[in-house]
Design a protein around this nucleic acid. Structure first.
Length: 473
RNA sequence: GGAUAGGUGGCAGAGCGGUUGAAUGCGCUAGUCUCGAAAACUAGUAUACGCUUCGGCGUAUCGAGGGUUCGAAUCCCUCCCUGUCCGCCA
């Protein structure tokens, strides 16, 4: 959520920011509603103050008169009742007026709130403007020694690459048919060494971030209340991407959803809290199963491990003080950790500065990391895939947008409460990361060379090979 | 799933429908005392929003929402949440 005060002071910044993000939210109407709401609220407060004052004055008198009623004859009763009516007429008039103002305010409030929640955080000035993901800007690339990204995989390695789908099938690393049989399209099972590799990757990434970089290891709930989804900024925009769990026993607004990322649990845990400022920055990492409906992606990336409904992810989150420089610093740190991880895995990658259109409503800045996937992309004249970049990581910088929605604050030097800043980034999401891993480390005989950093997590196994290969050698 | 007890400030815990934003205790902060600390004593100690002549003033908040009333932490209704016991269970 953006700061309504900032919107009042500088509406143009938010109007421009929304346009750049292709948002159609009606900010003009919001400003209008806000003005009305403020006027009504102020009038209400004034009436209310007046009413309180009068009540305090006439209270004892009313009490006295009501006491007299008990022991009065008919004539005095009538007289006293007239006096009571007179005494009460003014506060009753005020009461009615307050009621009218209340009605006006509660009519405005839901629309006001709804619009406010929809206003995207304006992108930072140094984020390139763009109209779609095509306008994202490549910041830098990295490839292991001996691998030239300007040349094809075949030129680099001396043989044509198989796709991860072929490799998975030959080495029996996953079972798509049975996954689909049980749960429908975009479901799968990891099997045998595939499952071992999947677990090894997660464990390697989790150990790297928690042991080497001091992030606190956490587990998180993946079933979360609607408030957490709204608070972290995934709702309302991403409502159709989340699995909704029916919970009719709970009241409205208390429905439960499956999280699409561990970020929801890591951020939600501090909602409505005033964090001890000595504890900042809070650096946390979790590994959790993530669920995504992939609504609107029908027909895209079908088959294989790229776009699936359920996967596991090691996620990093940082909550820091409200300071732009600090936010920027931690953003870089989070990216550096991923670069370190991918370099250890010997996977070529590139950093993409997302343009305004690709940021999503929460982010002031977002940098994606894409890994080179030789088996993706268009086919060349010989029917060989030309390879393509595929998104594996996404590092978000949100300033206080999320913390404001979550009401997550800390106390400043002078005792005032300040909304914290938050950031998050993927450490590693598997099985998607297995695509570049398998495709990049495949060898001519169809086996997979396991990077040395993973070998301890694979009981020392150095190569994945099919039973057929083993039999031949 | 069955039975029962509750939700008040950082915590514990009071609160006849009328100066109750809320007693008291603990905690915390500052001061006095001390070479220093502890103890003791004194003072202060919620949040949000609005207004401000920057000294304050006003409104809201006692789980949430609604109602009764001139006036609600206090009465009524609905919902939410939590604890305990029994049953079941990865």
């Amino acid at each position: 959520m953006i700061d309504i005060k900032q919107l009042r002071e500088n509406p143009q910044r938010f109007i421009d920011g929304a346009l750049e993000k292709n948002s159609t939210v009606d900010i003009i109407t919001l400003l209008d509603l806000d003005e009305q709401k403020r006027i009504f609220t102020r009038q209400r407060e004034e009436r209310r103050a007046e009413q309180k004052k009068i009540s305090k004055e006439i209270g004892p008198q009313i009490g006295k008169l009501k006491g007299q009623l008990k022991s009065a004859d008919e004539e005095t009763v009538a007289e006293i009742q007239t006096q009571l009516k007179e005494l009460e007429s003014k506060p009753i008039a005020l009461k009615n007026e307050i009621q009218r103002l209340d009605d006006s305010i509660s009519e405005i409030e839901p629309r006001w709130k709804d619009l406010l929640l929809q206003i995207p955080q304006p992108a930072d000035d140094d984020v390139p403007k763009g109209s779609s993901a095509d306008d994202n800007v490549e910041l830098r690339t990295w490839a292991p020694d001996g691998y030239n990204l300007d040349e094809s995989f075949a030129t680099n390695r001396g043989f044509n690459p198989k796709t991860h789908l072929e490799l998975v099938k030959e080495l029996e690393l996953a079972d798509f048919e049975r996954g689909v049989k049980m749960s429908g399209t975009r479901h799968y099972m990891m099997s045998g060494n595939g499952m071992r590799l999947h677990q090894a990757m997660l464990r390697f990434a989790f150990d790297l971030i928690t042991n080497e970089h001091g992030f606190t290891p956490m587990s998180v709930p993946v079933i979360l209340r609607e408030e957490c989804m709204v608070g972290t900024g995934f709702f309302p925009a991403g409502r159709d991407q989340a699995y909704h769990i029916e919970e009719s026993k709970r009241g409205a607004g208390h429905d439960l959803y499956l999280a699409g990322t561990g970020e929801v649990g890591l951020m939600g845990m501090y909602a409505d809290e005033i964090i001890d400022s000595n504890k900042l920055p809070i650096k946390m990492a979790t590994v959790s199963t993530c669920f995504r409906r992939e609504a609107g992606a029908a027909g895209r990336d079908t088959g294989g491990l790229y776009r699936i409904h359920q996967f596991d992810k090691v996620e990093q989150v940082i909550i820091c003080k409200s300071d732009e420089e600090e936010s920027r610093k931690w953003h870089k740190v989070m990216l550096t950790i991923v670069e370190e991880l991918l370099q250890q895995l010997q996977l070529p990658y590139r950093l993409l500065q997302c343009c305004t259109a690709d940021l999503g409503s929460k982010n002031a800045d977002m940098i994606d990391i894409e890994c080179w996937m030789p088996g993706r992309g268009e086919l060349d004249d010989n029917g060989q895939p030309t390879g393509d970049w595929g998104e594996t990581h996404s590092a978000s910088r949100l300033y206080d947008y999320q913390c404001r929605r979550l009401n997550m604050r800390y106390r400043g030097e002078d005792g005032t409460t300040i909304f914290a800043h938050s950031l998050n980034n993927t450490v590693l999401a598997s099985p998607r990361i297995l695509i570049p891993l398998l495709e990049m480390h495949q060898q001519q005989d169809g086996s997979i060379a396991i990077p040395s950093c993973l070998q301890p997590y694979m009981h020392g196994l150095k190569v994945l090979e099919s039973s057929a290969i083993t039999a031949n050698t």
